[in-house]
Design a protein around this nucleic acid. Structure first.
Length: 492
RNA sequence: CGGGGUGUAGCGUAGCCCGGUUAUCGCGCCACGUUUGGGACGUGGAGGCCGCAGGUUCGAAUCCUGCCACCCCGACCA
C-alpha cells in the first residue's frame, strides 16, 4: 500500500493516474494502450453493468452477442461510419503463426496464411449487426428489434489514459431497428434519458442532456444525443451517447421491410452506448485528495468494519458483536466487509479504505464494547462520530441514502456554479482560462465558426442542451444572429 | 502520428555529463519479538542480466544505434 497521493491542486492528471493505480482499480498492461482492470475496479464496473442491464431490460431490450471481427467489405459499406473509424482500426490479415526458420525458438507470421479478406477488429458494431439484421427483417411484424450487447471494442488511440481512453475498452452498445422515423427518434431520446437517469440517480453524477453539433456527431448518424458531465478540474466529459441513425445503415446494408400498406421501406435505426469511461467520470466527479469516493450505489463494500483490540479475548468479543451487526446490515441489503486482517494495524486499514472509497467505516474496540457504541466514519465528509450500536442498521441504511444524495448535490452545485453565460468573445476566453467549466453562449450554427473557436480556445461545443431556451442573440465569435445558446467547454 | 521527457529491486530514487573493486538510500517484503482508538518499533534477512536488442571498449547502468513502454504538449478520439 502506498502513502501520499499527489494533491489535485498540484497536478490533476497525476492525481488521477495515481489514484487509479493506488486504489487498485486498474493498471497498464504489457499491451500498449490496453489496461488490466483489477478486481476492485471490475467490481465497480459490474455494479454499473447490473444496473444498466436492468434498465435496458425494463425498456424492452434483450441482450445478444455479435462477433469481434468485421469483414472489411462489411465495414466499408456505410461510408461515413467507415471513414470516421478507418484511422483507428486494428486489422487481422493472417490466421496462423509458424516456427521461424531463421530465428530459433521464435515464431513468425506464416506468409502462406494470409486471409483472403482482412478482418477489422470492431471499433463499433453497426456494420456486422446491420448485416445480420438484414436476414431477420422482412415485415413490419419483425419490428422493432431492440438489442443490446455487452462487449469489448478496439480503437487504436494514439494517446491513452486508464479508463478515459484506452485502445481496448468495455462497453455496451444498443442497436435497434424500427418501422418508423418517429419511433426511432423516440428510442434515441429514451435511451439518452435512461443514461441520464443512470448517471444522476445511480452514479450521483449530474449531466446535461443535449444534442451534438454536426462536427461532433457520430460517424454515420443523423443526430447524436449525449449526456455531458463536468469534472472537478473544469473539463467536460461525454458520458454517454445515443444516435439516431436514420435509414443510413438500412440503405447501406439493404435492410427493407414490407409495411402495413404492403409497401417496401428501409428500416430506421438507433445505436447507443456507454463505456468503462464512466469509471473515469466517477473518479473525477467525487474523489478527493485522500483517494476514491464512491457513491454507496457503486461501492463493492458499502460498509467496512475495523476491529481494534489488544488481546485475543478482546478480538473474540468484538467478533461476536460484529457478526450480529454484519448480519443485521446484510438483512437490509447492505454490503459489509469485516476487515479482520491481523497483519495491518487500524490506522493502515483506515487509510486503505479511504483510498478505496468505502462510504462508511465502523471501528469497534474495547471502549465500544463497554459502552455499547461504535465509531462511525463517513468517507465523503471525512467526519466521524461515536454512536450507539442499538439500531445501527437503520442509521447506516439512512446514512447511505444521505451520502448518495449529498454526493449528487455537491457535484450538482459545483456543476451549476461552473456554467457561465457570456456575451462577448473576450469574456468567453477569460472564463475558459480562469473559471473553466461550461460556457453558455450564442453560436451562429456554422461548422466554420465552431472550428475557429476550437482553434483559438481549445473549447468545443459539448452539446445543444434539450432545455436550452429559445432566445435571440448574437454569435459570440461572428456576431451573426443566433436563436439559442449552446454549451462550450474544454473536454476530455 | 509530430515535439519534449523518463525507464536502475514491488514502489520512489542516487550514480550517468567525465566508463573502472561488492550499484546508493528510503518505503515495501520475509523471520522473530514487542505492539494495535489514524499509515507501529527493534533486531536480523532476502530481493537487481541498471527497459529490451545490438555496437564501441581490456572493461558499459554510464558512450553510440535501433526498438519498446510510460508521462507531458499538440493533432485524433468514447
Amino acid at each position: 500500500m502506498s502513502k501520499n497521493l499527489t494533491k489535485r491542486a498540484e497536478d490533476y492528471s497525476k492525481w488521477y493516474n495515481e489514484l487509479v493505480v493506488k486504489a487498485d482499480l486498474a493498471e497498464n498492461s504489457a499491451v500498449r494502450g490496453c489496461m488490466v482492470i483489477k478486481p476492485y475496479g471490475y467490481a465497480i464496473w459490474e455494479k454499473m453493468q447490473a444496473e444498466l442491464d436492468k434498465m435496458f431490460k425494463a425498456t424492452g431490450h434483450q441482450n445478444a452477442y455479435f462477433p469481434l471481427f468485421v469483414p472489411k467489405s462489411l465495414f466499408e459499406a456505410e461510408e461515413k461510419n467507415a471513414e470516421g473509424f478507418a484511422k483507428e482500426c486494428a486489422v487481422v490479415t493472417h490466421y496462423r503463426l509458424q516456427n521461424d526458420p531463421d530465428n530459433e525458438g521464435k515464431l513468425r507470421v506464416d506468409p502462406d496464411a494470409k486471409l483472403e479478406e482482412e478482418l477489422v477488429v470492431r471499433p463499433t458494431s453497426e456494420a456486422i449487426i446491420w448485416n445480420t439484421y438484414k436476414g431477420w427483417i422482412q415485415s413490419y411484424r419483425d419490428l422493432p428489434i431492440l438489442i443490446n450487447q455487452w462487449a469489448n471494442v478496439v480503437r487504436w488511440e494514439m494517446r491513452t489514459r486508464l479508463f478515459l481512453r484506452t485502445a481496448e475498452f468495455l462497453w455496451q452498445e444498443g442497436h435497434t431497428a424500427h418501422a418508423t422515423e418517429a419511433e426511432a427518434i423516440a428510442e434515441t431520446e429514451q435511451m439518452n434519458t435512461v443514461y441520464a437517469d443512470f448517471a444522476e440517480n445511480f452514479m450521483a453524477i449530474p449531466v446535461i442532456k443535449g444534442v451534438k453539433t454536426e462536427s461532433e456527431r457520430f460517424a454515420g448518424a443523423i443526430d447524436t444525443h449525449c449526456i455531458e458531465a463536468l469534472m472537478q478540474d473544469g473539463k467536460a466529459l461525454q458520458a454517454g451517447t445515443s444516435h439516431f441513425l436514420g435509414q443510413n445503415f438500412a440503405k447501406a446494408f439493404d435492410v427493407k421491410f414490407t409495411n402495413k400498406e404492403g409497401k417496401q421501406d428501409h428500416v430506421w435505426a438507433t445505436s447507443w452506448g456507454v463505456s468503462t469511461r464512466l469509471m473515469g467520470a466517477l473518479i473525477m466527479t467525487h474523489s478527493d485528495d485522500q483517494g476514491l469516493v464512491l457513491p454507496p450505489n457503486l461501492a463493492p463494500n458499502q460498509v467496512v468494519i475495523v476491529p481494534i483490540y489488544r488481546s485475543d479475548e478482546q478480538f473474540e468479543a468484538i467478533k461476536e458483536v460484529v457478526s450480529k451487526v454484519k448480519s443485521d446490515l446484510e438483512a437490509k441489503n447492505i454490503t459489509v466487509k469485516f476487515d479482520d486482517r491481523d497483519t495491518f494495524r487500524p490506522g493502515a486499514k483506515f487509510a486503505q479504505h479511504e483510498l478505496q472509497g468505502v462510504p462508511l467505516r465502523i471501528a469497534i474496540g474495547p471502549k465500544d464494547l463497554e459502552n455499547g457504541t461504535v465509531e462511525l466514519a463517513r468517507r465523503d465528509t471525512l467526519t466521524k462520530e461515536v454512536v450507539s450500536i442499538e439500531g445501527i442498521e437503520d442509521r447506516i441504511s439512512d446514512l447511505l441514502k444521505t451520502i448518495q444524495e449529498d454526493l449528487f448535490n455537491k457535484a450538482q452545485t459545483f456543476r451549476d456554479n461552473h456554467i457561465t453565460e457570456v456575451e462577448d468573445f473576450e469574456t468567453f476566453k477569460t472564463i475558459l482560462e480562469t473559471k473553466t467549466g461550461f460556457v453558455s453562449a450564442h453560436w451562429d450554427g456554422t461548422a466554420e465558426t465552431e472550428n475557429k473557436i476550437k482553434e483559438l480556445t481549445k473549447a468545443t461545443i459539448r452539446c445543444i442542451p434539450y432545455d436550452s431556451k429559445i432566445e435571440e442573440g448574437n454569435c459570440i465569435y461572428t456576431g451573426n444572429t443566433s436563436k439559442q445558446r449552446v454549451l462550450f467547454a474544454k473536454a476530455y
